[in-house]
């Protein structure tokens, strides 16, 4: 069962084609990694899927349903959640408050939303920080909070946009564990990431894009050995581990 399918997805900004005829699909329960150089169009593709921009051409299917012009809040209710590359916490509010905003997607009562949020904070080891103002968190915790909020909406598909950028190696390892656990709990994960160590360890399938076009895809080992990928993105020195 394909949970997400992009068919010839194209997005133009004026004369610039940010995403060019991108085709890809994700199976239910998979972790798919999307990599590529800066400016390759990864975040634009994410924004199209998440309903921020309507695609210029092509179609997006979520769960078999076409979602081309669907608004972000409706997509969220359908089970599609995302994080932002540049984190956007509700800075003046507490960590718990932030997560509760997400929980309210499926809960109407405050007590239920609070209970659900506390469970998620516990799951992500953030419960000690629940009363801290989100603006005062470290970058690692802010990234974690992004995930916590998205999880609170009870997604089936989670789009993670560079949740590991700026983290220390130990924090990256923790994040890899968290994402693997998410998959165990039945959530399909679509990751954009630059940290190759993490993406290789995580992904079942990797898609590489360059100037908006797909240049390679496959299991991590195949992609890492691909000549085009090495030239465009990884560099000659990158060795397959």
């Amino acid at each position: 069962m394909k949970i997400l399918e992009l068919k010839n997805l194209t997005k133009d900004f004026g004369g610039l084609r940010a995403v060019d005829n991108l085709n890809l699909s994700i199976d239910d329960g998979q972790i798919l990694g999307l990599i590529g150089p800066n400016g390759a169009g990864k975040s634009t593709a994410f924004n199209c899927i998440a309903g921020v921009y309507p695609p210029s051409e092509g179609d997006i299917y979520f769960n078999g349903e076409k979602i081309n012009n669907e608004k972000p809040w409706n997509l969220c209710k359908k089970g599609l959640a995302r994080t932002f590359q540049i984190v956007k916490p509700f800075s003046s509010k507490s960590v718990l408050y932030n997560v509760m905003v997400g929980s309210f997607a499926n809960k109407d009562k405050r007590a239920d939303a609070e209970k659900k949020s506390l469970e998620i904070l516990k799951y992500l080891h953030l419960e000690d920080k629940k009363d801290i103002r989100a603006g005062n968190l470290t970058i690692a915790d802010r990234k974690r909070l992004e995930i916590a909020r998205a999880l609170a909406t009870e997604p089936r598909l989670l789009l993670l946009d560079e949740v590991m950028a700026g983290l220390r190696p130990t924090e990256v390892d923790e994040m890899v564990e968290i994402i693997k656990n998410l998959r165990e709990s039945g959530i399909t994960v679509f990751v954009i990431e630059h940290i190759m160590r993490a993406i290789m360890a995580l992904s079942d399938w990797i898609v590489v894009i360059h100037f908006g076009q797909k240049i390679a895809e496959g299991i991590p080992e195949t992609v890492a050995a691909d000549e085009n990928v090495i030239k465009a993105y990884l560099g000659e020195e990158y060795g397959v581990s």
Binding site: K71, W73, C76, A81, R82, F84, F90, V101, A105, A150
Partner: peptide
Amino acid sequence: EEPEAAMSLGVNV
């Protein structure tokens, strides 16, 4: 506070 983030969390701002 953060309309984009709110929208992605299911809020019709």
